[in-house]
């Protein structure tokens, strides 16, 4: 096992950066700095995606989240930030309660994670050989053969493996496209300059 060393190092670096940035998002009071920590957290997540061979998802994460959504968020902050509102204080009691509740929640999740028995094998995929983009594209085009032929695991009768149903995702893709169009119109409608409001009222 020579390759996993590099993988493990990269994982620890990226994971600690991502997690620490996420914690900083919560702890920072200044909303713009929060957004910066969110940037690092999202970029770290993209790095994690690259690490597990999902390069197309990682690039999408960067271009949509970091280049689009986060810029939009910062834009919103700049438009709505007026001196005193940039940092809105949360009271100590609220903090204490949230932290306790959050730690309990984290504990429950971690116990669930460690109790789960996943049947998993490790396989390294180098970015050049990763064909996830091709498989994704074919699957979104409605080609069911794009999903790999595999057998279901963790079924009730492990000695009689079942072939999995091969799916394609053309319909969800179209629905998401229409959804985005609706959102485009909706956001433009909501955020438009209201000139008639004063005259009507």
């Amino acid at each position: 096992m020579k390759f996993p060393d590099l993988h493990a190092t990269l994982f620890w670096v990226l994971a600690s950066a991502t997690a620490l940035s996420a914690i900083s998002v919560v702890l920072t009071q200044n909303i713009v700095r929060s957004a910066v920590w969110l940037l690092f957290s999202l970029a770290g997540t993209a790095g994690i995606f690259f690490l597990v061979g999902a390069d197309f998802v990682a690039a999408t994460q960067l271009i949509v989240y970091v280049g689009g959504t986060l810029v939009l968020v910062i834009f919103g902050v700049m438009l709505t930030a007026q001196g005193p509102f940039i940092s809105m204080k949360t009271s100590a009691a609220e903090w204490a309660f949230s932290v306790v509740a959050g730690l309990v929640f984290l504990g429950v999740l971690l116990v669930t994670v460690t109790q789960g028995k996943w049947v998993g094998h490790f396989a390294a995929v180098s970015p050049a050989e990763s064909t996830s983009a091709v498989a994704l594209g074919e699957s979104l085009l409605g080609i069911a053969d794009a999903t790999p032929p595999a057998q279901l695991i963790g079924t009730a009768a492990p000695d009689q493996p079942l072939p999995r149903t091969r799916m394609s995702y053309l319909l969800p893709f179209e629905i998401v496209s229409v959804h985005l169009l609706v959102v485009l119109i909706g956001a433009a409608y909501l955020a438009r300059a209201k000139r008639r409001r004063g005259a009507a009222a």
Partner: peptide
């Protein structure tokens, strides 16, 4: 998607 593989080593939910 990356880790879940069947006994033959095929990724079960790679695309999903």
């Amino acid at each position: 998607a990356y880790y879940l593989r069947d006994p033959q080593g095929n990724a079960v939910f790679l695309v999903e």
